[in-house]
Design a protein around this nucleic acid. Structure first.
Lengths: 153, 153
DNA sequence: TATTGTTATACTCTATAACTATA
DNA sequence: TATAGTTATAGAGTATAACAATA
C-alpha cells in the first residue's frame, strides 16, 4: 500500500488540533506578531503599546482606564505600559480638571510621528502577509474575526 | 447636533488599529483562549500542553524536538512542557533504540482519556463561540487562517 | 558538522488581590 | 458605594545563547 506514508498528511501531524479554531487563531496571531515585530524593527515598539498609542491618537483626552477597556487591558497592567510611554516621551499626561482622580492622555509630537511611521510599515508588511487573499477575502476575514471578538465566554 | 456623540462610533475608538489584521487576530485569539480555559476548567490543562498531547496522540513514537517543530515551539521550551506532562502521568518517554540522543513519546492511558475528554469540551465551547457563523463561514475562516499560518515573515 | 535534549535566562502579556484618593 | 490609578505578585508563552552527548 503506497498510500499513507504519513499518518496525517496534509495536516502537518496536528491530529485533533486541526479542527480547533482556537489553535489556528493562536498560530495565525503569532505569525502576525512576528510580522509586526519585523515591521517596526528599530522603533522600539511592541504590539500592545502600539495599540495604546493608536487609541490615544483616536481619542485625545481619554484617560488610561478607558484605554484599557477599549483594548481589553487590565487597569493594573496599564500603569507600567503608560509609564513606559511617558518615559519614552511618546505620551503626555495631565491631571483631569474635572476629575481629580484621573489623568488626561494625549500623544506628544514624537508619539504622533511614531504612530504614523509604524502604521505605514505595519500596513506594508500586513499587505504582504495577506497578499494571497483577495480584497473580498480580507474583508471576510476581518468580519469573521470581529464576530469572534464579540463573543462572551 | 445629535450625531457623533462618540469620535469613533462603530470601531470602539480603536483608531488606526481597526484596519490591522494583526490586532484583530490577537484579540480573537485571546477570546478563543478564554473559551479554551472555560472549557477545560478543572482538568488542569492549558492550550500549549493540550497541543502537545494532540500531536503525540496523532504521532505515537515521535520525539519532542519533532513535536516542537510541528507546533512552532522552541526545543528549549519543550523540555519543561514535556517534563510537566510526564510528572502528570499523561505522557510516557522511553529512549529511542535507534538514536541514543532521543526519546520516544507516547500518551499514557490517562493522557489518552484526557485528550478525549478535553477535546469534547473544547469542541462544544468552540461551537458556541462560532454559533453565529454558518458552516461555510467556519470553513472559510479556517482556510484563511491556514493561509496566514503559512506566511513566512 | 549537525542534531537531541538540556540549562539558564529574560521579556512580553495576562491575571488577581488589595490599597489610596477621589467621586 | 463605585471608580481611577496604583502596587505587588504570579503564571503562561515565547525568545536566545551555550553546553553535553550522540549522529
Amino acid at each position: 500500500m503506497a498510500q499513507k506514508d504519513n499518518e496525517n498528511s496534509g495536516t502537518g501531524g496536528l491530529g485533533a488540533l486541526t479542527g480547533f479554531a482556537g489553535y489556528h487563531l493562536r498560530r495565525a496571531s503569532n505569525v502576525a506578531g512576528a510580522v509586526f515585530t519585523a515591521a517596526v524593527e528599530g522603533l522600539g515598539l511592541r504590539q500592545v503599546p502600539f495599540g495604546i498609542l493608536c487609541v490615544i491618537a483616536a481619542n485625545p483626552g481619554i484617560n488610561q482606564g478607558a484605554v484599557g477597556r477599549v483594548l481589553g487591558i487590565q487597569r493594573a497592567n496599564m500603569v507600567a505600559l503608560v509609564n513606559d510611554l511617558l518615559e519614552a516621551g511618546l505620551v503626555e499626561r495631565v491631571p483631569d480638571p474635572r476629575d481629580r482622580r484621573a489623568f488626561v492622555l494625549s500623544l506628544s509630537p514624537a508619539g504622533t510621528a511614531l504612530v504614523a511611521e509604524a502604521g505605514r510599515r505595519i500596513a506594508e508588511r500586513e499587505a504582504a502577509m495577506l497578499a494571497g487573499l483577495s480584497a473580498a477575502e480580507r474583508a471576510q476575514l476581518m468580519k469573521l474575526l470581529a464576530r469572534i471578538e464579540a463573543h462572551e465566554p
